[in-house]
Structure formats: C-alpha cells, structure tokens
Amino acid sequence: SSTKNPAIPAPLPSALATARIIEDIGSIQYPEGFKSPKPELNVNAKQGKFRYDRDFLLQFMAVCKEKPDSLPPLDAIGLEPADQSFPIT
C-alpha cells in the first residue's frame, strides 16, 4: 500500500486525466500494425458516441497498464484475491 511521503512531490496529472476525447474516430491514424475500429460500427456515429469491436479493444490490453487515479485501494473496499492455496471445500 502507498505511504505518503511529504518529501516526494505530487505526481504530474496522468496522460489519462489530461487527454482529450476523440471527436471524429474516422480521422485517427493508428500506427502500423494497429487496427482501427470496424468502420461499419460507426457509420452514423455522433460526436463521442462510438462503438468498438473486440479486436480493436484488445489492442489496448498490453498498453494501458497504469492504475486509474480514481481507483480506490482495493483492500479498502474489501476487494482482495482469495487465497488460492487453501480453497474452502
């Protein structure tokens, strides 16, 4: 768990917190090797209202590892992994 050390300055806002919302999904160029969302899902898409297929979404799994600022400490809400070595029988 995190202990507060006053000597360490507060971290800069994360890219997640400062990034703008994409308004036109069709205008985004993805780097080579990355797929765009399937165009048929967003034919009449309104600004900021997009659908994304699974293959597109899965590309983020290995990239977006950073814990969101708004995620509370999991133990504080009673959300902890079960001890797998002693299953209740």
Partner: peptide, 9 residues
C-alpha cells in the same frame, strides 16, 4: 477505453 484497461490491469 484507456481507463477501462487501466482498471482491468
């Protein structure tokens, strides 16, 4: 999408 994966991971 980015925040979802941050949560998921």
């Amino acid at each position: 999408v980015e925040e979802f994966w941050g949560l998921y991971n």
